[in-house]
Design a protein around this nucleic acid. Structure first.
Lengths: 238, 238
DNA sequence: CGCTCTCTTGATAGACTTCAATGTTAGTGG
DNA sequence: CCACTAACATTGAAGTCTATCAAGAGAGCG
């Protein structure tokens, strides 16, 4: 049951240690916690930065046509909208895919802390960097891969991210996305996602039942996806 | 003829003023300048951060299949790979679309300056934020728009960015992209880009000759693209 | 003048979407 | 425990958008 401040500390200090005073300053930030149900908009509390303590959240835009494009998926420990520290909310809406625990921290307090603490500022930069690296990979995925490779790539990415949380390769992956969600994340129709998933099953790369995915042949799935398992996992410069 | 340090200062202080000592620290950073020809890889000088002083640069990835996806386009005054400050190069390659003047600054020196100067750190965060905001818009564009709207959207984005540099709406826009480049940026084939551009011409939204685009009906183009003219231009939180 | 790169055009094929119906599952209340 | 509902998954058929292939036309350049 990690608290908001635990998650914040971990997100900002991963692979890079903060000074003790920076850690205590983070721990001292006042925070609030929020439980939200599945499929709810994460409330845009003015000037608050939100953290995903537990659960899944997606960030998306709705087009004039009414279609939805999911731009990012976030799991336990993620801080989806770090950009709010610097610029006002950017037209992206966040919605829960599962029941969630959400942590809230004052953006102004975080800005103030960034100003005083180089380590925290560095952590924020690293988070912003990872977010844009993932976004670029999505651009490549959606822009240039066939449907089957595209869906495989998304699953590889999510699997690797879940492994990073759990610490090891899993037998099964709980990915609470409907086929419509997968379509909205990959730029495909739900019907086609269904067909592609069946093809992945036929190829014996993947099994799925009740929101759980079983990766049957990890290496072949990675190969099919053209997935680079390192891409989320590069050592920081400093 | 802006220098590397000019561009750096402008990129980091836009809409947010740095303290005099921060400005002088930036001005005092030692920099190098580099002239590169069209269609050349921007050399990945170990540990150097590069700035586009003049010209156009694209960041892209090549898939196993040999296809290319352009993930970002950069013009005068942009700092494409700010991420290098925090993480090592991320598989993205940068290539010039025109003859370019490139500025180089030591990433380690910038990191050191970020550590000492909250204003500089804030400027870096703002740049990282803008980069990921654009990337998200590209995801939406590529994922959910039809070819014609997609190309229109790219042109709107580039037009707005060029306007920001020039300071006003232009009669013509020099966009040195081949139709193949536009295809690689939008996830389309060059042949289809050609047909789409002709359709935009037929609709009398756009004219193009010799690498120059003339936007004939700005409002209708924006409408067709579903473009939000504000999206690059939100006021900073602070 | 020939070379290369880019743009253009037509024909054909294929990937993916849309529409519509049916099956499946889990949850709810009687 | 069963009927009822709603959400999601699955299937088929038809249609559309976009890719691919191939060839020719212009334009710039040595």
């Amino acid at each position: 049951m990690p608290t908001t401040n635990d998650v914040l500390l971990r997100a900002l200090s991963a692979r890079y240690s903060l000074e003790p005073w920076e850690q205590s300053a983070l721990a001292a930030l006042s925070s609030r916690e929020l439980a939200i149900r599945r499929d709810a908009v994460v409330p845009d509390e003015g000037g608050m930065l939100f953290l995903v303590l537990e659960g899944w959240v997606c960030g998306y835009k709705i087009l004039n046509s009414g279609e939805r494009q999911i731009c990012a998926l976030h799991v336990d420990g993620d801080i989806p909208d770090f950009r709010r520290l610097v610029l006002p909310p950017a037209g992206l809406e966040y919605r829960s895919l599962t029941v969630c625990r959400i942590g809230l921290i004052s953006a102004a307090a975080m800005r103030e802390l960034c100003r005083k603490s180089p380590g925290v500022a560095h952590g924020v930069m690293r988070n912003l960097t990872v977010i844009s690296t993932i976004a670029e990979e999505w651009i490549v995925n959606i822009g240039r891969r066939r449907a089957i490779n595209r869906v495989a790539h998304l699953i590889c990415e999510l699997a690797v991210r879940l492994e990073a949380i759990k610490g090891s390769i899993q037998a099964r992956y709980v990915i609470p996305l409907t086929q419509t969600d997968i379509g909205d994340a990959t730029g495909l129709s739900a019907v086609h996602v269904n067909r592609v998933l069946q093809e992945l099953r036929t190829k014996r790369l993947l099994e799925f039942r009740g929101g759980q995915f079983f990766i049957l042949d990890r290496q072949r799935l990675i190969d099919l996806a053209g997935f680079d398992p390192e891409y989320l996992d590069r050592a920081p410069s400093q």
